[in-house]
Design a binder for these strands. Structure first.
Lengths: 209, 209
DNA sequence: TAGATTGTTAATCGATTAACAATC
DNA sequence: TAGATTGTTAATCGATTAACAATC
């Protein structure tokens, strides 16, 4: 079994927890803590210690019996596993209020995601500055993507335009999309898509109120 | 078994899918479609038809054999189940780029979530207009919440301030929080919390690239 | 060494799916 | 009636947890 086979075998839900572990570990490192345990991590994340150990065991052995995990070492290991030990160029589509907030969000840059271009269909928006960037016309999307190293895109356009924008991104070879538009986008199976819809979260909470 | 018992029994994961069904149904209704089936809904949402039928069966019978589901009727039923057949007042904490984008987001208002106050700790922000609203000082938070009908809050402050803000909201009686700060907030078990962190989504996708 | 905590196996738990009788 | 699709049961699948030997 080679690395790719092992990779394919890891359940999706396990992969989706790794960023949570990474965030908690980074938080510990910021506070100057050098060592942690599955018990401690589990408590801060409301995840059972057994599950954390099991999740990590898909990728190797990162701890020491009786000692726990070196925070820095585990951060490096998880970063490598998630391919975060490199920088990712990201294209942002949409320069409205939401796009503006995303463009200014420092959290991306600090963690290896660099927004390298912003596009908008609105002529009045084109040419405006957004932090370090200048808004480009949507017509330039394909040409620009072909010349860039961008592998991910963030969709922050109105729901009515989101599917068309997505189709263009997919045709241009984008393989991962973070979607802020409140609709279910259709993409081919090889394209990863992650939805961010605040309404979905709110609506699930009101059930319990 | 009374209604409350039945309510408690429904798995969390089932509840979390109901807003997705609602969104897909609303989309169908907007396009003028009157009837749908678990097969059609499943295809648009990438969920098996059996699962949709099973999920709905926790709450009653909403379809007709051989016919499917009346879109409007199912929308009304799900809205009632999720308590969306009323309006919810929401407090927004944080008037930075993200808070501004949230305050302007029409999607909330259209779906029964009304942001009725915005708070910020920054004196330069206080008094500024944000759409229909005026930014209030953080000092007024408790007094204002006590007088309002607000049941939910949106946290859009920097990570460093998020736990303190959350503690104040919880003490003031808020029972559901939508958190945009990129940290794991601790809340008592009776308080619902939903996290929105774009980085988590991006980081799970890079694994597969 | 004694104590602690990992990595891993086996058991348990819960969620998903297949299948089909009921029925529109 | 024939065809279609629901609601529901039972079977399957997969994820979580308990337990413990290994070992730092």
């Amino acid at each position: 079994m080679d690395l790719d086979d092992r990779r394919r075998q890891v359940p999706n839900i396990v992969v989706s927890r790794l960023p949570l572990y990474l965030r908690a570990l980074t938080h510990l490192a910021d506070r100057g803590q050098a060592v942690t345990s599955s018990l401690e991590l589990g408590r801060t994340l409301s995840i059972s210690p057994a599950q954390i150990r099991k999740d990590l065991s898909y990728f190797g052995e990162f701890g020491k019996q009786g000692m726990g995990y070196e925070v820095d070492r585990l951060i490096r290991a998880l970063s490598r596993i998630l391919q975060l030990d490199r920088s990712w160029d990201v294209a942002l589509i949409g320069a409205g209020h939401l796009g503006t907030a995303i463009a200014h969000y420092a959290g991306f840059t600090n963690r290896g995601f660099r927004i390298t271009a912003v596009f908008d269909a609105e002529p009045s928006k084109v040419g405006q500055r957004l932090g370090r960037l200048t808004v480009r016309p949507m017509d330039d999307l394909e040409t620009w993507l072909a010349r860039s190293r961008v592998g991910l895109a963030i969709v922050a356009v109105p729901a009515s335009a989101a599917q068309e924008v997505t189709d263009r991104l997919v045709r241009a070879g984008i393989k991962a999309i973070l979607n802020y538009a409140p609709i279910n986008l259709e993409v081919p199976p090889e394209v990863r898509i992650h939805h961010i819809d605040p309404l979905i979260g709110l609506q699930a909470m009101t059930y319990y109120l």
